[in-house]
């Protein structure tokens, strides 16, 4: 994963639930691209048409609340979202995202839709290139950073190897 990214902002309110990210009626596949076609269909019908690879979602608190569907972060990755920034995330969404490689930043930033942001995961900073406002966040603990980088699948494979050699 890139430890430094630059992308365009999509602004969302607080308490965006997983039913908004991907409505339940589409939960008949695990395919990222297929799921991405319906991301935010009910609440932001313009999203799928205009989203670009590398865009960044900036939301209010409790992003990803509701169901355990891993389909939600899968849909966002499929849509090309590089990172989600919010003051807080629902816990299952948080785990799912880190496990499958969608970077999350817990940070309260005051930016508007269309702004260009840079995110430095190493140093824990977000900069709004339009206003030059800078925000800082706590970088992930090492364990979660590794998980984000390698993914739960690789992490599990390594664990299985360790278990075998015990």
């Amino acid at each position: 994963m890139n430890r430094y990214i630059k992308g365009r902002v999509w602004r969302f309110p607080e308490n965006v639930d997983t039913d908004q990210i991907i409505p339940a009626k589409y939960l008949v596949t695990g395919d990222r691209q297929e799921l991405a076609k319906h991301a935010f269909e009910n609440v932001r019908p313009d999203f799928t048409e205009h989203v670009r690879e590398g865009d960044i979602i900036v939301a209010g608190k409790n992003f990803g609340s509701g169901s355990s569907r891993e389909h939600a972060p899968r849909a966002l990755i499929g849509a090309g979202i590089a990172c989600v920034i919010a003051p807080s995330f629902a816990r299952i969404f948080y785990r799912n995202s880190i496990n499958i490689g969608l970077p999350l930043v817990e940070c309260d930033v005051d930016v508007v839709e269309g702004d260009i942001l840079t995110v430095d995961f190493e140093n824990g900073t977000v900069v709004d290139m339009n206003t030059m406002s800078e925000y800082s966040f706590h970088p992930l603990p090492d364990f979660l950073m590794d998980l984000l980088e390698f993914g739960l699948i690789e992490n599990t494979k390594m664990k299985l190897e360790r278990m075998k050699s015990r």
Binding site: S68, R69, E70, R95
Partner: peptide, 25 residues
């Protein structure tokens, strides 16, 4: 792999929702 897995707390279990990849793991 269902968010309402927390239901079994009523029986004194620690039960919690996870994602699909985690369930596989």
């Amino acid at each position: 792999a269902d968010s309402h897995t927390c239901s079994y707390g009523a029986l004194g279990a620690l039960s919690t929702g996870i994602g699909s990849s985690e369930a596989a793991s």
